[in-house]
């Protein structure tokens, strides 16, 4: 079976990738962010997961509104790094895991979780921004990644509860995979931020702290919230934290947070959290 060794919640702000590429790891304005990822990178280096199951959203890069899937699973053997308008980041292409992805599709759809399946679509900063801080990549990434895209751009979005249940269904699917694999689950996005309209620049650290407490201890309380609640409390684009609920749903009922970092510098509360099963 595929065994879950832990979960990671992380922001996917594009600026993280830009700062990384510009070598700002020791710049005083950025060091608190990069240092916050080091314990997670060390954990991954030590635990050596074979696969990361990565709940992310495409930012209108590889999917457009002519067909914007609510949930979509990446099944190909590899994924290019996306060009989002300013050229591609200098990162190796990301390896997929077609065997596990096909099993996940079989299992999810047979549980009436009718997920779309995509191949060979480039992965944008929703994946590559945090990934470059989590995994070494010269000359290549140390493992494979199965991306699961969630629509957080065009309402109606899947409910927070549905995302949590997707995570639970992914957990069941992993437990029935015939091959032995070590898997870490990653949920991306957030925390508080709003980047459109006159309310741009909104943050709410008090809410962010409550979110971090609830995701660990009482995720169902978050899963019962409406999108409008997330928008009001954390800013419009922070509704994407429903992707953390997908990660949380894939973990055991009780978990232990082994590391966390929160850094609100300009517009988005950049956060990383590492969880192990209790």
């Amino acid at each position: 079976m595929a065994r879950i060794i832990g979960g990671i919640g992380t922001s996917h702000v594009p600026t993280i990738g830009v700062a990384y590429d510009k070598g700002k790891q020791h710049d005083p304005a950025w060091a608190p962010l990069f240092q916050g990822y080091e314990p997670v990178a060390r954990w991954l280096a030590e635990k050596k997961p074979d696969v990361l199951v990565f709940f992310y959203n495409d930012h209108l890069t590889s999917f457009f509104f002519d067909l914007y899937p609510t949930f979509a699973l990446g099944a190909s053997a590899q994924f290019e790094i996306a060009d989002e308008g300013a050229g591609k980041r200098q990162l190796p292409r990301i390896k997929g895991h077609p065997g596990l992805a096909a099993h996940l599709a079989d299992s999810l759809v047979n549980e009436e979780f009718d997920i779309a399946v995509f191949q060979e679509r480039a992965l944008d900063h929703g994946v590559n921004s945090p990934l470059s801080l989590l995994w070494p990549h010269e000359p290549d990434w140390p493992g494979a990644l199965v991306p699961i895209a969630i629509n957080v751009l065009q309402y109606p979005l899947p409910t927070a509860m549905r995302c949590y249940k997707l995570g639970q269904a992914v957990r069941r699917a992993l437990s029935s995979y015939p091959e032995d694999l070590k898997v870490a689950i990653v949920g991306t996005g957030g925390l508080s931020h709003q980047i459109h309209g006159e309310r741009t620049g909104f943050n709410n650290t008090e809410w962010d702290m409550r979110f971090l407490d609830l995701i660990e201890r009482d995720p169902l309380e978050l899963a019962r919230m409406k999108h409008a609640d997330f928008v009001r409390l954390g800013g419009a684009e922070s509704v994407e934290v429903i992707m953390w609920l997908a990660m949380r749903g894939a973990l055991s009922e009780r978990i232990t947070k082994v590391h966390g970092n929160y850094y609100l510098a300009t517009s988005t509360a950049m956060t990383v959290a590492l969880y192990e099963e209790a």
Partner: peptide
């Protein structure tokens, strides 16, 4: 009306992007 968005029109300076707008 999407029940998940109930009350969102009371949040100033915010423009939810939905299928109709899309």
């Amino acid at each position: 009306m999407n029940p998940q968005l109930e009350g969102i029109d009371q949040i100033a300076g915010t423009y939810p992007f939905d299928v109709a707008r899309s």
